[in-house]
Every structure is written in C-alpha cells, then in structure tokens.
C-alpha cells in the first residue's frame, strides 16, 4: 500500500481545496509582510503548483506525473480556481501556462548574524479571495465525485491514490458536523488498488501564540477541544510509509500512529505539511 512509484502511465492526483470564506480576511504575517490569510494561502497553494511542476521537471522537459485540481469554496459555491478547467489538469498543461509572477522578499538571518533579503518569484496560480460562508460539506461532496471519477479511469486504477489537501480556518457552515464527517468518510473511502484517498486537513490560525497541533497522535486529540477532534476524525491516518518522516518532523521522540492534519497551524507550518504530504510518499521514476 502507498508504495506505487509515480510514472507517466501511473500518475497521482492532487486536490488543493481552499476555504475562501470571509474569515480568511483576517490578517497575519507571512514572508516578512502583513497580508490576509487569503493572500497567504493563495501564495502557498501557488507555490505548491510551482513545486509540482518543478518536481516533474527533467532538464527542459516536464513529465506528466501529476493531475492537479484547485478548488475554492465560499458563500454557497464550490468552484475550480484553475482557469479553463472544472476538474483535474495535467501538470504538463499547467507548465505551459505563464501566470503573473510576483516578487516576494524575505528577510533572513545568516549564521554569521548578518541580515539578508532573499527574493523569490512566485507564479500566482490562485487568486486570493475572502467572502461569504464556508460550504465545506459541498466541497467534500464535489471533491469525492472528482476523485471517484479519476480513480475509476482504467489508467488510474493501479496508481497511487489521490491526495486531498483542505486548507481552512474554520468549520463548515452548510451542514451539521455529523454530515460533514460522513462526507469526509465517503471521500476517504474512495480508493485505487494502492490505497485509499489521503485527506489532509490543515486548519490555519491567525493567533501566533496558540500552540499548533501538527500530525497529532490519537492520544493528543483525545485531550483537545471539540473542533480539533472533529477535524481529526475527518482526516486520514498517516500511512506507515510516512511515519518516520512525520516523527522526524515532530522531533519530539513520539511514536506512530499519527493523523494527517494540522490544527492552528501557521502558514509556514502549513507549507511544511504540504511539502511532507506531497513529497514524502511520492516516489517518482
């Protein structure tokens, strides 16, 4: 399980689902500047797409290793955030596009103590938006349909299962918690021959003093508040193949099992989780 190499004939699907509700208008600090959560998530999601393109790159070629979908949800709508696509887009098609690029500067401190400004160009794949309620239930239903269709295609049946990242700062407003949990269970029940869909929920905090729970253990969740426990129930367990990396990431000597979620995560922690979730399991040929 979860060992299939990624090739051009056995690709992997990534879904990045982004909460674009009004609470995402709250401000935080990211890349040495003040911005809204929506802007920060837009950068993080855009960077993940750039990352996937980079990972598929071999010399001047981009190999068709990934199918990518970016879904936004706000108000009463669930919608694709990739122009010209309602579902998955092959990474090779994304690589041909030239989205607007923005230059970001980050102040870094060298080991010598000197300060430096390092600049990075990021392609803005995902427009930031914040407004309306949080139709997370509808999003889960829509994503379930998408990954079911993808997993049922003959060329994908033996592939690594889809990985779904849900980035949010709140809870669903369009259904009861029980309905949302059932929808998440249905999503996680979708499978290829290599395993079940991996649902990674990342909850963002704007309060830096609140301690984050990253890849928590079941015992830690049992002591947490109700919202955290609900998110944990929605999330996939960390596959065995990934536990060592998670253990190193937590750096606290803990042992598996772990849960694929982050609660009250900072944006930087969200980036680390996305990197872990998208790279660690995925071995490319």
């Amino acid at each position: 399980m979860y060992r299939k190499e990624i090739t051009r004939s056995h690709r992997v699907a990534f879904v990045i689902a982004i909460d674009q509700s009004s609470s995402m208008y709250q401000r935080l600090t990211f890349l040495s500047r003040q911005c809204t959560k929506a802007e920060a998530v837009s950068i993080v999601a855009s960077r993940l797409i750039d990352e996937l393109i980079a990972r598929a790159r071999r010399d001047d070629d981009v190999r068709n290793y990934y199918d990518v979908a970016v879904i936004g949800y706000s108000g009463d709508s669930v919608y694709s955030l990739l122009d010209g696509s309602e579902g998955f887009m092959p990474i090779t098609l994304l690589a041909e596009r030239r989205p607007e690029q923005k230059l970001f500067a980050c102040e870094c401190v060298l080991p010598s103590g000197e300060h430096r400004i390092l600049t990075e160009k990021i392609s803005m794949w995902v427009p930031p938006k914040a407004g309306g309620a949080t139709p997370m239930y509808e999003m889960l239903l829509r994503v379930t349909e998408m990954v079911e269709r993808w997993s049922a295609e003959p060329q994908n049946r033996e592939s690594f299962p889809p990985v779904v990242f849900n980035i949010t700062d709140g809870e669903a407003t369009d259904a009861t918690p029980a309905m949302v949990l059932r929808a998440a269970e249905n999503l996680k029940a979708v499978a290829t021959e290599e395993g079940n869909v991996l649902l990674v929920n990342i909850h963002l905090s704007s309060e830096s003093e609140v301690e984050a729970m990253l890849f928590p253990q079941p015992g830690e969740i049992a002591k947490a508040d109700e919202a955290t426990r609900r998110m944990a129930e929605m999330s996939s367990p960390v596959p065995d193949e990934m536990c060592e990396v998670v253990r190193d990431f937590r750096a606290d000597g803990s042992r598996p099992p772990y849960i694929m979620m982050g609660y009250n995560a900072s944006i930087t922690q969200a980036v680390a989780m996305l990197n872990i979730g998208s790279r660690t399991l995925i071995k490319q040929r």
């Binding site: 990972r55 060298l110 990075e120 990431f249």
Partner: peptide
C-alpha cells in the same frame, strides 16, 4: 526542515550569501 524546491532555487540564486 522539509523545504520546497523553490527554496533551493532561491538559495542557489543567492549563492554569494548561501
């Protein structure tokens, strides 16, 4: 630290500092 590829690219582009 699980860094992204872009962070490696940034570092290599700023070789004199990194």
């Amino acid at each position: 630290m699980i860094a992204s590829i872009s962070q490696y690219v940034v570092s290599v582009l700023h070789a004199c500092d990194t």
